[in-house]
Simulated scan of single mutants.
Amino acid sequence: MVVSWTPHRFTGGMLALDTANTVVLRNDPEKTFDRLKDPAEITRFAEAASGFRAAELGRPLVAPTPEKIAPVVLSIRETTDRLFRRAVSKGAITTGDMPEFLEACADGLAQSRTEIGRPGKLFGNPATPIAFEAALAVSALSLLRGDTIARLRICPNCSWLFVDKSRNSSRLWCDMAVCGNRQKANRYYRRRTAAREVTNV
């Protein structure tokens, strides 16, 4: 199935979180599914992320051989989700989760021969593309900053991870237009149903 990589798919706030969120409904074993199950979607996701994450990346992404990089991408995705989902739940990072996460990120960087970390340009030279798996590793590692960890959230509707970039750190939903409105509609429906039941008693 071809995925429509809409703006809503990039509400995590950072490339690594958007990638972690390509597994939908992780908290529901019966409904969960993986949008990157077809490796070809990695290329399409990278193309979309080049636009939607342009401010974060500062350079385009390339994923020329998705079948080859798929194991590395999925490893970074899963270890990132596990590490930071637990960090949100516990309020701190669990050191036991770190080695696997760091190994996955190292694998993502291993084949890259690009310079990163210039002042103001975390992802390196904006004039040249960067391999998707390398950019994903850099984004995942940048989540370790204390100020970022403090702003990580889990959407109560869809269970996606996101960075709360609101001024007063009060953002509740990954996307107010989607998850926020769904929750409002559900609450309204429950109130109406409860009111009808009381009336019919």
Rank of each mutant, 00 (worst) to 15 (best):
N27S: 01
A140G: 07
E67L: 01
I69S: 11
V178E: 05
V23L: 13
I130L: 15
C179M: 06
A131G: 15
R44E: 13
H8A: 13
S170N: 11
T128P: 07
G180C: 04
L25S: 09
R82W: 04
N125Q: 12
P29D: 06
D175Q: 12
R26W: 02
L102G: 04
K31G: 11
K31H: 15
P129Q: 05
R113N: 11
A16G: 10
A127S: 10
S50H: 01
R187P: 00
V201K: 12
F33K: 00
F33Q: 04
R182L: 05
G124I: 09
R59I: 01
S139W: 06
R187A: 14
T32R: 13
V198W: 08
D175T: 07
V2M: 08
R82I: 01
T199L: 14
K37M: 07
A55R: 15
L136E: 04
E100R: 10
V163A: 10
T148P: 06
A140W: 01
E100G: 02
D107I: 04
S112R: 00
R53A: 04
F52H: 12
S112M: 02
E133M: 09
P60K: 04
N186C: 08
R82L: 08
A177N: 13
A177R: 06
A106R: 12
I149Q: 14
S139K: 03
W5N: 02
L161K: 07
L61Q: 00
R26A: 01
T22M: 12
P126C: 15
D164M: 14
L172M: 13
D175W: 03
R151W: 15
A127Q: 12
A46E: 00
D38Q: 14
A150C: 09
E67W: 02
N21C: 12
D97Y: 06
G120Y: 12
F10N: 03
K121N: 01
E115M: 11
A48S: 08
R113G: 09
R44W: 05
A185I: 06
N181S: 11
F123M: 08
E56M: 01
C158V: 14
P66D: 03
A70G: 09
I154V: 14
P64G: 01
K31I: 02
P71K: 02
L152N: 11
I130G: 05
A140H: 05
P156D: 07
F162W: 12
Y188A: 14
V62D: 06
E41R: 07
Y189C: 00
W173R: 05
N21Q: 07
S75I: 03
R86N: 13
A140L: 07
L74M: 15
S112I: 01
F45I: 01
R192D: 14
L15Y: 05
R196C: 00
P99C: 06
S169R: 15
K68I: 13
L136S: 03
T94K: 02
T193Q: 14
P126F: 12
G120R: 11
K165T: 13
S166L: 02
